[in-house]
Each structure stands twice: as structure tokens, then as C-alpha cells.
């Protein structure tokens, strides 16, 4: 690459990056602004000083508990989906259980629009008394993320050489031991990556939570929308709550750059 090309490439790269990062920057700085700064005209492009008052309010009013709710709901449903999904994926990957039909049915479950899933689930939950309970939302998240886990783990398990497992079988392992002593260690990275993505999906989810929670298990995404008002929005709270919800995701993603593409492309691209 010549010097000139390289220069223009950097110009383009920086311009693009500014466009994609500025809104995030804006979200973050608003959360650190004082109310006066937020509602100043013309807007201030950077905060005069870092001000944590907006966060303090969230904790003082108890709104921050919604982040805890998100953590519980996303965490538990991820663990459940990983356990069930990985075992199912193993069966499909190794034994072609159910053939193409089962695999296709499972992935098609991922493609149904959430509104069409949540509506009947809501009707059922009303009957069962599961609306606004941890169990209700966790079950739904687990089921909704299962196809993803199965699909991804199927790919990672298929990458494990079959001979490794056969060798373990001959050496004296039962199938359970093979899964525990060979497949899991071989898929460690894939398991972690899939778990993190599953967690992020559940963590970021909005529509299910909006429908199925009221006051007890409100997640942070629903809480953000509570700050939208008819005439005026509670900007400080919107941004602070959004940052609380977004920061963990950024940190998680930073740790898994390597698996990102495979994770978001449903395994279509093996990084």
C-alpha cells in the first residue's frame, strides 16, 4: 500500500468509526452530565466534569434493581439453555438424531417473530399465573435461546474429531464420560462464546420482558422505556440506565473478539 492510499484509508476509517461511535459517545456523556448541561442549548459536546449523580439517583430510587433482575433472568436462562442445548446438540451432531428434520425444525424456531411467540405464551402464562415471575420469563428466555445454543454447539461439536471420542470409548469411557472428559474440554472456547452470546441476547431482550413483566421482575430494557414521557423524557435516567445495561455487554464482547463473527452469523462463518 502506498503512503497516499494509506492516508486516505485512515481518513475513511476514522470518519466511519466516528459515525458509528458518536451515538454511543453521546449516550455515555449524557449520563455524566448534570441536568443543566443536558438541557443546555446549544448542546454541550463534552461534560464539564464527570458527574455521577444520575447513577446515584438510579440506585437511590431502587431503579437499579432492574439491572439485577436482568442479571438473574439472563444468567439463569443462559445456564439452563447451555445445559439442555449442548446435550441436544451433541446428540444431533454425533448421531444425527432426528435427521435433517429435527435440526431444521429447531433452527426454524429461532426465526419465528417474537411477537408471535410471546402472544400465545402470554395467554398461557395468564392461566398459569406465571406473568411477572422469574420462572415465567426465565423459561421463555431458555426456550427462545435453545435453538441458538443447539445450532452453535452443534457446529462446535462437529469440529471435535470423532476419533478423539472413539478413542475414549475404546479406552473405557461411557458416553457420559466422553461428553464430560473429551467433548467439553475440546469445546471450552465454543461453550464460553455461545454462553456469552446467549447471555447477551437475553440481557438485551425487550419485547418478551415488556409483555411478561409488570413490577416484580422488570428488566433494565423495560425500565429504560419507563423514562420516556409524553412531553418530556427523563434523559438523565434513560442514559444512565442504558449505560448500566450496555457496559457489561461491551466488556464481554471485548473478551471474545475471536468468536464474535461465528457467534453472530449463527456459525455460518467459522472464524
Amino acid at each position: 500500500m502506498s503512503k497516499g492510499t494509506l492516508f486516505w484509508r485512515y481518513v475513511a476509517a476514522i470518519a466511519i468509526t466516528v459515525f458509528f461511535l458518536f451515538p454511543i459517545y453521546w449516550l455515555f456523556i449524557i449520563s455524566f452530565k448534570t441536568p443543566d448541561e443536558i438541557f443546555s442549548f446549544p448542546p454541550k459536546w463534552y461534560p464539564g466534569q464527570i458527574h455521577f449523580g444520575n447513577y446515584a439517583v438510579l440506585f437511590k430510587d431502587g431503579d437499579a434493581v432492574t439491572v439485577w433482575n436482568s442479571l438473574v433472568v439472563a444468567g439463569v436462562s443462559t445456564v439452563l439453555a447451555m445445559i439442555l442445548g449442548t446435550l441436544c446438540a451433541y446428540s444431533i451432531a454425533r448421531f444425527r438424531t432426528g435427521g435433517e428434520n429435527l435440526a431444521n425444525w429447531i433452527i426454524s424456531q429461532r426465526m419465528v417473530p417474537p411477537i408471535a411467540i410471546v402472544f400465545p405464551v402470554f395467554l398461557m402464562y395468564v392461566k398459569l399465573g406465571l406473568v411477572d415471575t422469574y420462572i415465567g420469563i426465565i423459561l421463555l428466555y431458555t426456550a427462545f435461546n435453545l435453538p441458538y445454543v443447539i445450532w452453535m454447539m452443534r457446529g462446535y461439536i462437529q469440529d471435535v474429531p470423532k476419533a478423539l471420542e472413539e478413542s475414549a470409548l475404546v479406552d473405557g469411557c461411557t458416553r457420559w464420560q466422553v461428553i464430560w472428559k473429551v467433548v467439553f474440554p475440546m469445546c471450552r472456547a465454543g461453550l464460553l462464546a455461545t454462553a456469552i452470546f446467549t447471555f447477551i441476547f437475553a440481557w438485551n431482550e425487550f419485547l418478551f420482558a415488556l409483555v411478561l413483566t409488570r413490577t416484580e421482575v422488570t428488566t433494565y430494557t423495560v425500565q429504560v422505556t419507563h423514562y420516556f414521557g409524553g412531553q418530556s423524557n427523563f434523559w438523565a435516567k434513560i442514559s444512565a440506565m442504558s449505560v448500566l445495561g450496555t457496559l457489561p455487554v461491551f466488556i464481554a464482547v471485548a473478551f471474545m473478539q475471536k468468536y464474535l463473527v461465528r457467534g453472530i452469523s449463527l456459525g455460518a462463518v467459522k472464524g
Binding site: P161, A163, E166, S167, C173, P185
Partner: peptide, 19 residues
């Protein structure tokens, strides 16, 4: 099952556990 057959096996691609 294989584990009860009193056999040992060497595979083409070694099949060693990388971890």
C-alpha cells in the same frame, strides 16, 4: 460397548487429547 471388549486402538490421526 467398546469399553467392555478388552481392546485397545490406535487411530489414523493419532486422536490424542490436545488439552
Amino acid at each position: 460397548p467398546p469399553r467392555d471388549r478388552d481392546i485397545a486402538m490406535v487411530f489414523q490421526n493419532y486422536a490424542l487429547y490436545p488439552y
